[in-house]
Amino acid sequence: MDTTDLTTAPAGSRTIATTTKTVLREAGIGIALIALIIVFSFTPHFLSSSNVTNILTQVTINLVLSIGMTFVILIGGIDLSVGSVLSFCAVVAGTVMTLPGLDPVMAVFLATISAILAGIGFGLLNGLISAYWAIPSFIVTLGTLNIARGAALQVTNASTIYSFPAAFNAFGSKTFYGIPLLFLIALVLVAIGWFVLAKTVFGRVLYGIGNNEEAARLAGHNVFFYKVAAFTICGVLVGIGAIIYMARLNIASPIIGIGFELNAIAAVIIGGTSLSGGRGSIVGTLLGACIIGVLANGLILLGLSDFMRQMITGFVIILAVILDKYRERLTKA
């Protein structure tokens, strides 16, 4: 373990060597993304401004979920419930937003708050159960995946909620110099996530727990608190992701978000975060999410069949992890 020193290291005192490693790691993913863009730029329309807008729109939800997933994976956990919880948050928010007699601004405000609270609720549940009883989060979140999906179906009686305020719907497709507003929101969240993980003691302790939980405990950190916090942060982002989904598609339904957790995990892993925890970054996750989005978009523009597209996406995930192994060796030397 080359980074156990981080457990106790205060913010800002990271060695130059570690910083260089992080930069190298992210540069590698960045190069992969650029290479992908160069390949696709030979297909017509790929670099058109409207296509760039599309890609950014399509990346947004996965990016927001991936930020939360990064926190959880960094401490050596995993959250399989995000897709279902997103659906639950969306139907709760959708129910609030369509309550009769609310003025549109108030409706959207209350809906956003309730989505985030619902996300926090499930995040707390995931964190508390896995930390208190020391149950692998894989199992706990597999359970909450079903609880959240069932709850979403129960709340709505399996029906789709629609007809949100017109301004909210319009907001979902607003762009600012070709950049979707929703993506800008995601970028702000990326910046916050980056700051918390890279520049605060809190963030460094999360890395420390992922590297060596016992060492973190011996260093006097309240590991229980940090674990619950990581899952709760993930829950907040799922709640925000639910609102973004509703703004983009103007519906909320108990069957949305199926498989979103896998896309988020893929973005985090492609972004160079280690599944065993302790290593990775939000910037990597941003690049990972972009790689997935660019790939999905570019392969359709190329005219590849759906089945080929699925296979290639699978190959890229594996390739990314293999490349990461080599990068690890290089940066260690």
Partner: peptide, 19 residues
């Protein structure tokens, strides 16, 4: 295919429209 799904249909159709 968009697997019967709203979000996937949105993504897939946006990309078709670009092409």
């Amino acid at each position: 295919t968009a697997h019967w799904e709203t979000e996937e249909a949105n993504t897939v159709f946006s990309n078709m429209l670009t092409a």
